[in-house]
């Protein structure tokens, strides 16, 4: 094996005085390493995932049952069906809570995935910017539709 080094034509023949670079994991603490945060944000985020998950199990399974299984299943869904449900404040609230919890739950989950997997700081920044923009847009649009829905629209 040692004789192969010369024949491969490597630009840098490594030796005791010229060792190959070792691969440093991004863990060495430098001056650019972010300082400790001293906030409870991660605690609240972690807790929110558990609590919203429990509520979402009820909301989403109930939603799927009503929409897809009970009373004729998916074939009954139409403009009139949605208009009928959103005439009641109960279903408005249900859908609003499901929208907010679902979006925030999913966004927080994606945030942790980006934190875990994005390797470069700029990648992380842009992915998070995209995620937060999409989340805010969807939540605002959904909320607007639920509150301003007009069953008489033509």
């Amino acid at each position: 094996m040692a004789t192969d080094i010369e024949t491969t034509g490597s630009s840098a023949p490594y030796g005791p005085d010229n060792p190959a670079p070792v691969i440093e994991p991004p863990r060495a603490r430098t001056s650019r390493t972010p300082k400790t945060t001293r906030t409870n944000f991660e605690l609240y985020g972690w807790l929110f995932m558990r609590l919203s998950g429990i509520v979402l199990v009820v909301l989403v399974i109930g939603h799927l049952l009503i929409q897809l299984v009970l009373d004729g299943g998916v074939s009954k869904i139409g403009f009139a069906f949605v208009a009928g449900r959103w005439a009641s404040p109960f279903w408005q609230t249900w859908d609003l809570i499901m929208l907010w919890l679902g979006m925030l739950h999913g966004a927080n989950g994606l945030r942790t995935i980006i934190n875990d997997y994005a390797e470069r700081d700029s990648t992380r920044l842009w992915l998070k910017a995209l995620l937060y923009t999409a989340t805010v847009f969807t939540i605002l649009l959904g909320t607007l539709v639920i509150f301003t829905f007009d069953p008489n629209i033509r």
Partner: peptide
């Protein structure tokens, strides 16, 4: 062995 090669094998 960084004194021989940059690749592990």
């Amino acid at each position: 062995n960084p004194e021989v090669s940059e690749e592990a094998s």
